[in-house]
Design a protein around this nucleic acid. Sequence first.
DNA 1: CGGGCGATTGATTGCCTTCAAACGTGGTGG
DNA 2: CCACCACGTTTGAAGGCAATCAATCGCCCG
Lengths: 215, 215
Amino acid sequence: MQAAFDTSTDMITFGPQLSLRGVRMHFGRNAEIFGEGEDAEYIYRVVSGAVRTMRFTADGRRQILGFHLPGDIFGLEIGDAHTLSAEAVANCDVVMVRRSCLDKAASEDPAATRALLALTSEQLSTARAHALVLGRKGAGERVAAFLVELAGRFVSKQELDLPMSRADIADYLGLTIETVSRAFSEFEREHAIALPSSRHVVMRNPSALMHYQAA
Amino acid sequence: MQAAFDTSTDMITFGPQLSLRGVRMHFGRNAEIFGEGEDAEYIYRVVSGAVRTMRFTADGRRQILGFHLPGDIFGLEIGDAHTLSAEAVANCDVVMVRRSCLDKAASEDPAATRALLALTSEQLSTARAHALVLGRKGAGERVAAFLVELAGRFVSKQELDLPMSRADIADYLGLTIETVSRAFSEFEREHAIALPSSRHVVMRNPSALMHYQAA
DNA sequence: CGGGCGATTGATTGCCTTCAAACGTGGTGG
DNA sequence: CCACCACGTTTGAAGGCAATCAATCGCCCG
C-alpha cells in the first residue's frame, strides 16, 4: 500500500514512471471522505493522519476493511462507483487525483496500468490475510496480529501511537470494544506491551506477540 | 470471476480481445493444484468441477478464501510465488496457461493488462464482501449468505448441487461442521430450503434466505 | 452384509458478547 | 485556575452463541 516515499508533496506516485499532481484536502476527525455507492470521481493518498475504509450490513453493523496511513493509496476503483466507504480516523490531509486524469495516464502508458495492477494485487493479498484472521483466529490472536501488522507499517517499530479508537480496532477485528480492551490489558499484564496511555503502545516483547498471533 | 462463456475449449479468455490457449489437465478429488509459496508458473481456469483456494495458520487451521466454479479464473499472481494454495474440491478439469505466456501478451497489449486489472479488482471486491461476512455476521447469516452467493453463480438458481463438503463450507465461513449442519437443518425446518440429499439444495423460499443473511 | 466416511443430532463447555458500573482524561466554562 | 462534564476506556458479572465432545444415522462402496 506504500506508494510513495515522499509524503510532503501533492502528488500520487504509482510507480517509478507515473506521478500525478492532485489537490490537497483536509478532513476532520470522523469526517466522511466518500461513501459506498457514490461516484468514484477521485483516488486518494494519505499525507498525514489516518483513514478507515469500511462496509456495513443492512442493519448497520460496521466492518472496517483497512486502515490507511501516510503514503497509502485508497479509494481506487475500476468500476464507476465506490464499493466501500472512507472516513478520517483522525484529522488528516489527503491528496486527491481525478479518476479521469488517472484513466488518461493509464490509457497512454501501459506501465501505469501495470502499476495499478500491482497495487490492486497487493490490496487483494492484504484482504485475504485479513480473512484468515477473521475466520480462524481467537480474540487474543486477532489483537496480537493487529499490533504486529501495525508495528510493521510504522517507521518506529518499537512504539506505536494508535490513531484509532478501541471501537475502530474492534470493528476491524470483528470483536467488541470490551474484548479488545481486555486483550490489551492481558498483553500488558504479561509484559508483552506497555500502555503508558490507551493510545500509546510500547512493544516490550515483540516475539511474545508474534507467538500470540499464531499465524 | 466468470471470464468465459465457453468452458469447453482449452482457452482462457481475459477480455474481448485476449484469449490464450493452454493445456487441459485433470485433478482428482482433494488433489493439490498448487501450494502457497510455490512458484506461480501457471494461471488456471476451471472447466468442470470445483476448486478451493485457501490459507493456513501456523498451527494448521484452514481458511478457505474462495470456491471456483466452471469459467472462473484462479491462481493469478503478480509476484513470483503463489500467495495461497489450491485444491480440487471434486474431480475437475482445469486449463493451465503459462505465466510467461500471459506476461508476454500483457506487455504487447495494454488491453490485456487492463483485463487483468479488472479481474483482480473484482476478486478484491469479493474478498472484501467476504470479510464483512466473517467479521460481522452470526452463524445462520453466514450460511444463508453462502447459499445466496452460490445460487447466484449457478446456471440454475433454484437447485444447487453442492460440490463441497460441510467441512469445506465451515472453513469458508469460519465455522465448524456441526454449526453449518445445524443451520442447514434449521433452514429446512423453516421451509426456506429442501434437502433431498445433503449435497442437493432446493431453494424453496429464496427471499427468506435473503432476509436471513441480513446483508 | 459389513465397513468407513460424511452428516446430523444431542449434551456440555467455554469464549466472547452483553449489560453495567467505575475510571481517567481532555476540554470547557465558570 | 479549578470544577465539572463528556467521552473513551477499563473492569466486573452474567448470559448466549458457537465450539467441543460424543453418539447415531445414512449412504456409498467394497
